[in-house]
């Protein structure tokens, strides 16, 4: 196991996979890490078709540093650094990472899942399994975006958080397979 610098996990994973090609390598990255400081690394790892898997956890906020606005924070969403709600006129718009990555030829399998309900958790498990199978078959880059909750920094109870995710995140970040080059499916 490696601890990579903030945002750099896809580059570190590239180094590992190239050095030891028969190893199974995945990155586990949050939305601040992957979609802000590490945008270049994830885009280029995907574009190169690195035979790695990325599990991308999107909870629309910086969790570890205590609840600041992330690139995935929704318009109007209140965070420590968007206290009046994210104003898209000054703070811009959220990034839909899965849709963006699915435009790259090196990305073989991209799916967005959610862990707000048991059926969705089962779907998430299936997607992650498929992403690793893609890697084991040496087909290229795979990414699973997991919409998840952050009760602490959202200031909501776990139950309220699940409802908030369903009501706000899923409409902005539609679930499903964004690209599956093994079947030719691109959404």
């Amino acid at each position: 196991m490696y601890e990579a610098a903030h945002g750099r996990a896809p580059a570190v994973a590239t180094g590992i996979k190239r050095a030891v090609p028969d190893s199974v390598v995945f990155t586990y990255q949050g939305d601040g890490d992957l979609a802000a400081i590490g945008t270049a690394e994830i885009v280029h790892a995907a574009a190169r078709g690195e035979r790695i898997t990325t599990i991308f956890v999107n909870n629309a906020i910086y969790g570890m540093t205590g609840g600041q606005m992330a690139p995935t924070t929704l318009p109007g969403q209140v965070t420590e650094t968007s206290p009046y709600g994210r104003d898209v006129k000054t703070a811009g718009y959220p990034i839909r990472v899965s849709e963006m990555i699915s435009t790259l030829d090196g990305a073989v399998y991209v799916e967005r899942v959610s862990v707000d309900s048991v059926p969705n958790i089962i779907k998430a498990k299936k997607a992650i399994k498929k992403a690793f199978e893609i890697q084991l078959q040496g087909l290229g880059f795979s990414l699973v975006e997991v919409l998840s909750i952050c009760p602490t920094n959202w200031g909501l109870s776990p139950n309220e958080s699940v409802k908030w995710l369903r009501d706000n995140m899923i409409p902005y970040y539609p679930l499903g397979v964004k690209k599956d080059a093994t079947t030719g499916e691109v959404k």
């Binding site: 990579a4 570190v12 590239t14 180094g15 190239r18 050095a19």
Partner: peptide, 26 residues
């Protein structure tokens, strides 16, 4: 052996971190 042109110097040195940690000369 492996040659890879990274997307930036930042990425290149982190690839070095990855390969060095896996025990190869890099």
């Amino acid at each position: 052996r492996v040659f890879l042109q990274a997307e930036s110097e930042v990425a290149a040195i982190n690839m070095v971190y990855g390969a060095a940690g896996a025990g190869v000369r890099v």
